[in-house]
Amino acid sequence: MNSIIETILNHRSVRSFEEKKLTKEQIEIIVRSAQAASTSSFIQAYSIIGVTDPKMKKQLAELAGNQPYVEHNGHFFVFCADLHRHEMIGKMENKEVLYSIESTEKFMVSLIDTALAAQNAAIAAESMGLGICYIGGIRNQLNEVREVLHTPEHVIPLFGMAIGYPKDLNEQKPRLPFEHIYHENKYEQDEVKLKTQLEEYNRLIAQYYEERTNGARKDTWTSQMGNMLEQHVRIYMKDFLQQIKMDLH
Rank of each mutant, 00 (worst) to 15 (best):
I5N: 06
I5P: 00
L9Q: 12
N10T: 05
R15W: 12
S16F: 05
S16Q: 12
E18L: 15
L22P: 07
Q26M: 07
Q26G: 03
Q26C: 02
I27W: 01
I30V: 07
I30P: 05
V31I: 15
R32S: 11
S33Q: 01
Q35V: 00
S40A: 10
S40D: 03
F42V: 03
I43Y: 11
Y46K: 03
Y46N: 02
I49G: 13
V51E: 00
P54L: 07
P54G: 03
K55L: 05
M56E: 09
Q59S: 11
L60C: 03
L63A: 00
A64G: 07
G65L: 09
N66A: 08
P68N: 08
E71C: 02
H75G: 07
F76S: 01
F76Q: 02
F77L: 15
F77G: 02
V78E: 12
V78A: 12
F79Q: 09
C80E: 12
H86I: 14
H86V: 09
H86K: 11
I89V: 14
G90T: 04
K91R: 11
K91C: 01
E93W: 04
E93Y: 09
E96R: 10
Y99T: 08
Y99G: 04
S103Q: 01
S103P: 01
K106N: 12
S110I: 02
S110V: 03
I112F: 03
D113N: 12
L116D: 03
A117D: 07
A118Y: 00
Q119K: 02
Q119E: 13
A124C: 07
E126K: 05
S127D: 02
M128N: 02
L130I: 05
Y134S: 05
I135H: 06
G136W: 12
G137N: 05
Q141H: 14
L142C: 09
N143G: 09
V145S: 01
E147N: 11
V148G: 06
V148C: 05
T151G: 06
E153G: 01
I156Y: 02
I156A: 06
P157V: 06
G160I: 13
G160N: 14
M161K: 05
G164W: 09
P166N: 07
L169P: 00
Q172F: 01
P177C: 05
F178D: 10
E179F: 04
H180E: 15
I181F: 11
Y182S: 14
Y182I: 15
E184L: 13
E188D: 15
E191F: 15
V192F: 10
Q197T: 09
E199S: 08
Y201M: 08
R203E: 14
R203S: 08
I205M: 12
Q207T: 08
Y208W: 10
Y209H: 12
E211T: 11
T213D: 02
T213H: 02
A216M: 13
A216N: 15
K218P: 10
K218I: 11
K218D: 11
T220W: 04
T220C: 05
T222Y: 06
S223R: 13
Q224A: 12
Q224F: 11
G226A: 15
G226N: 10
I235A: 15
M237W: 06
K238Y: 09
F240G: 03
Q242K: 10
I244A: 00
D247Y: 03
D247V: 08
D247A: 06
D247T: 03
L248W: 00
H249W: 07
